[in-house]
């Protein structure tokens, strides 16, 4: 159902497929317009919130978010908001790039991670994702986590969602073509 659709995976269909796959791996997607994005992030983010800067003009984390957290803030935070630099439609994965602002710990030490993603950065398949970022690894020493669903373990005798990493993940997908009105399907059910 996934990788085999790469042939028709362009533009809109890759985004549709990303949304579908993301939900299948337990990550709800709120598909919103640029104008709505800040409000939706605010609604989804249960306090206390930690956040790293979002690179899109006019899109911000909640006002009460801590942007220069201490280690204790991180451990105490319920929600972490960070940007994603891309997504892979076939797998419902988001690409989280490490940065000096601390996006890696902010997405990792919290109970719930909200990844904010620009629809323009969704690619159809893994091959394209690696090719697109190949030079970033080589020339900018980039580190990227391909994150698919919340953290999980089967080591305690059965599957448990929420191991060392977040128990819940939401994606806020900024899509100017989004159909306003039927876009928000709510956060993870915690």
């Amino acid at each position: 159902m996934h990788a085999d659709q790469t042939a028709e995976a362009e533009g809109g269909s890759a985004i549709e497929r990303f949304c579908e796959r993301s939900r299948e791996v337990g990550v709800p997607v709120a598909r919103v317009s640029r104008e709505e994005a800040t409000d939706v992030i605010g609604e989804l983010a249960d306090p206390p919130v930690v956040a790293t800067p979002l690179p899109w003009e006019g899109i911000d984390s909640p006002e009460d978010a801590t942007t220069e957290p201490t280690p204790d803030d991180l451990e105490r935070a319920t929600t972490g908001v960070t940007p994603a630099v891309g997504a892979v439609a076939d797998y419902g994965s988001v690409l989280l790039r490490s940065d000096r602002a601390g996006s890696e710990p902010t997405s990792l030490f919290v109970d719930r991670h909200i990844a904010v993603l620009d629809a323009a950065d969704v690619v159809p398949d893994m091959g394209t994702a690696l090719a697109d970022h190949g030079d970033a690894f080589r020339e900018e020493s980039a580190s990227i986590v391909v994150a698919t669903g919340p953290s999980a373990t089967a080591d305690m005798g059965e599957l448990v969602v929420g191991a060392h990493g977040p128990r819940g993940v939401d994606v806020v997908l900024i899509d100017d073509d989004a159909d306003v009105g039927e876009t928000i399907d709510g956060g993870s059910d915690e």
Binding site: Y91, S143, V146, T148
Partner: peptide, 9 residues
């Protein structure tokens, strides 16, 4: 795919 494929440089 597992939850995390970390590509660390």
């Amino acid at each position: 795919l597992t939850s995390y494929v970390s590509l660390l440089t």
